[in-house]
Design a protein around this nucleic acid. Structure first.
Lengths: 247, 247
DNA sequence: ATTCATATACTACCATGGCAGTATGTCAAC
DNA sequence: GTTGACATACTGCCATGGTAGTATATGAAT
């Protein structure tokens, strides 16, 4: 598990002073700062706005965001717990490399949990859930037709989350969401493909149909097939961007 | 947690009480303090040395342990992430209640993952793993015969951990270990029962036999039965100690 | 050109003080 | 007895300074 030594950061002129220009959006001092910093950094990493091996300095980040080092540090610790950054004491903190092994294990964890969730819901779920999930499917179709990729990703996330919530498994969703970050990062390796979105949408429909029919094995199988499709495309993307993916 | 110093903390043993307080064992200032505080508090909570709704004050803990509030605070945040404590800003931090719902969901997560691991290993594992796991089983039997309960719990943990390691799923084990904390806490609700340990040992044997035979479904079934047994006894214990268990 | 000692500029980790927000005790008004 | 205002004693959250440890640059010696 010995992380590879973080090679020296290619001096891409980080000397550009932070005159508050790249301030994005100011931190709201009335709400917990640590959480805001965490959310912002997590988004930056998962969307590849920050690339692997890029350094995250407590001090520099605190200056850029206009907050103290303490909440920044707490955010970095949380990100390290989720495997998005590597902290080397007294050396520095760096965006973790995209390791194919980690992506595959994230897929394993997610599939194990979500298949079990799907099987459970196929064994019984509320009418309200079915109507809501079908409404979500309808919105997904609209998003695909409108080529609204980001919206589709949001609906996709809500789709999977609602399964856990209907099953009363909120902690499970937290685990899934945490490991999903590794796969989300791979998604951003290339621009989304419209045809691929249609495949995903049809798989979503198959899952809902199996759940509604009460077919446990079919629900489990459909969910597994769906998640493996996500992994398959992730691998394909990895092949195309070997400069950013390890292993 | 990637990239943090390996902080070995000698397990329970000599607990020399220093003057005037339950200092247990001094913090080693040469190793990361936050990690040591975390380990200590986690153990105190899971062994019910600290009971639900007991307060954990940053300031008080820092005085008791002879460290500053910062590493204590970071330890509390980690414990909150794992659901062992509840932090109410500006009000206080308290040991989380044992909620039966949380225990059941921890069981769900653990079963989903470990069943998948068992199925994977039944599909193929190394000879070295089989010899090592059988060696562990042998030690388990010795521990049961010697009525060495704590030793059995350690071997049990190593048993399950080695499954994940053999499958190359270290992150999965971290997830399992994290959710397992909720169940560990229930285990300490009563003294261990020798007959129960024999049941667990036999279930362990059945799992290993199925894996060695390459019977995927049997391996999965044995693992599921084993983990459900653990939950069943947990529920029984909860009934006996409703004063400490919610819901 | 290589090696080795040392100065320097970082890093994350920890200690400590100040702050806003919350619970509680006290006491006057009804 | 009940209510409400206010002082007080906490809490966790954040800001900031100091320290040990690490990487790199510099330069003398080989």
């Amino acid at each position: 598990m010995a992380g590879r030594r973080p090679n020296q950061i290619s001096g891409a002129g980080s000397t550009e002073t932070t005159a508050g220009s790249t301030q994005m959006q100011a931190i709201n001092p009335r709400q917990p700062i640590a959480g805001q910093v965490y959310e912002r950094l997590r988004r930056a990493i998962t969307t590849l706005s920050m690339l692997p091996s890029e350094a995250l300095s407590e001090k520099e980040l605190s200056l850029q965001l206009g907050v103290s080092r303490t909440p920044v540090r707490e955010a970095l610790i949380r990100l390290a717990d989720e495997g998005l950054i590597d902290i080397f004491p007294q050396r520095g903190s760096f965006v973790a490399p995209i390791r194919l092994r980690d992506v595959e294990e994230a897929q394993f964890i997610r599939e194990s949990l979500e298949v079990a969730v799907a099987r459970r819901l196929a064994g019984g779920c509320s009418r309200r859930f079915l109507t809501e999930i079908k409404s979500n499917l309808y919105d997904q179709e609209k998003a695909v037709n409108a080529e609204a990729f980001d919206l589709f990703l949001e609906l996709d996330e809500a789709f999977h989350k609602s399964f856990c919530e209907e099953a009363g498994l909120s902690k499970s969703w937290r685990v899934i969401q945490s490991v999903k970050l590794q796969m989300d990062r791979v998604r951003y390796l290339s621009l989304p493909d419209l045809g691929h979105l249609r495949v995903l949408l049809n798989q979503h429909r198959a899952i809902v149909d199996a759940v509604e029919a009460g077919d446990l094995e079919q629900a489990a199988h459909s969910m597994a097939a769906h998640l493996r499709e996500v992994l398959r495309t992730a691998k394909t993307l990895s092949e195309q961007r070997r400069d950013l993916v390890e292993n």
